[in-house]
């Protein structure tokens, strides 16, 4: 029996969400609370009013960027565990450029500049493991992890110079470099969400319709075969990691340009690792990434709302269970399909 891919994907998602809900229920029961009550409250506080919806969109925005980042690298056969560091530097770059512009800089000029700065800083940080892989065959997983630590150290080191005295944040970016709020009942949702959707559409187009994207997928499926077909594998690796880094760097838009208007140490922490969950849950497809980011964003904001009943760390556990369940069930189903085909 061979399953239709859509059925298979639905099965993977069904199994994963059910196991996450089951694990969550156990943890909630351990505290003597009612799972139905907690889940109900979680849902009401997120999709129940426009403020909740706005907060979900705000929390989902970084996850869309990092999810796309991980997914794009993955389609090239690379693991980007480094979104965490890339987004830190992207945010810092956006804040520094945004704060150094003249106060009256028009938005038409300032916005593209700061967004570009965020993407560029992320791209540089992402390209490093790509180059190391292409030139020395060094595995990108370890290098991206090391670069996360190095980015954190770099932020601290630069912080001595660029943070305002006695604080851990930079100066405010100029008015023109700020992204307006979406106007959802005073929530933090801002134009970055739309930017994230545009990025998702662009990644979809790149992967599905563009020649370079086709080459990238070919390299991901089989570097040797792609090489034989005339694709420059090493250049593709570097380009894929740089693009992945740029996408992660854009996370800075949401926090720096759309919300706080300055860069703060620890900003966006965790979004990089969650991007792995998002990419996995979204099955590597840009539309799937957006939906998965909305789901995890819902959990993330909902976790705060139910914090009075159960510790919000519950949400971290649920997210981890979702990743584990997706990874295990899709591997098991692949093997099942393989056996059936023999």
């Amino acid at each position: 029996m061979t399953r239709a891919p859509v059925m298979r994907e639905a099965l993977v998602l069904g199994i994963s969400l059910l196991s996450a809900m089951a694990a969550g229920s156990l943890l909630i029961l351990a505290l003597g609370e009612s799972p139905a009550h907690v889940y109900g409250l979680l849902l009401r506080s997120t999709w129940g009013d426009s403020y909740g919806v706005g907060q979900v969109l705000f929390k989902s925005t970084p996850l869309i960027f990092t999810g796309l980042s991980v997914a794009l690298a993955f389609r090239a056969g690379l693991f980007n565990i480094g979104a965490e560091g890339q987004l830190m530097l992207g945010g810092l770059a956006a804040a520094l450029v945004g704060a150094s512009l003249p106060a009256g800089a028009p938005a038409a000029l300032a916005l593209p500049l700061v967004v570009l700065a965020a993407a560029l800083a992320g791209a540089v940080w992402g390209a490093i493991p790509g180059v190391l892989r292409a030139c020395f065959g060094a595995h990108e997983v370890i290098n991206t992890i090391m670069l996360n630590f190095l980015a954190a150290a770099l932020v601290l080191g630069l912080g001595h110079e660029v943070f305002l005295p006695e604080t851990t944040h930079t100066a405010l970016v100029v008015e023109g470099a700020r992204l307006p709020a979406l106007g959802l009942a005073g929530s933090a949702a801002n134009l970055s969400f739309i930017l994230a959707l545009v990025a998702a559409a662009a990644v979809w187009f790149y992967l599905a319709r563009a020649r370079r994207g086709f080459e990238l997928r070919a390299v991901g499926l089989s570097p040797g075969a792609a090489e034989n077909a005339g694709v420059r594998v090493r250049a593709t690796w570097v380009a894929a990691m740089a693009t992945a880094g740029a996408l992660a760097g854009l996370v800075g838009c949401n926090f720096v340009l759309g919300y706080k208007h300055y860069f703060e140490e620890g900003m966006g922490r965790g979004a990089g690792f969650m991007g792995i969950a998002v990419a996995l849950l979204g099955r590597g497809h840009p539309l799937g990434v957006v939906l998965a980011a909305l789901l995890l964003g819902t959990l993330s904001h909902g976790g705060m709302a139910v914090n009075a009943l159960v510790p919000k760390e519950l949400v971290d556990v649920l997210q981890a269970v979702i990743i584990l369940a997706v990874a295990a069930s899709s591997a098991a189903l692949d093997r099942g399909a393989g056996r059936a085909g023999q």
Binding site: F79, I81, F273, A320, L324
Partner: peptide, 29 residues
């Protein structure tokens, strides 16, 4: 997860770290 069910070792490794991170904080509370 990785030996019996052959799930991806990198993905599972990262997820286990996230799980440990969340679970220990949950249990601490």
């Amino acid at each position: 997860l990785v030996l019996r069910w052959r799930a991806n070792q990198i993905v599972v490794g990262v997820a286990i770290n996230l799980l440990a991170f969340g679970l220990t904080r949950y249990l601490l509370k």
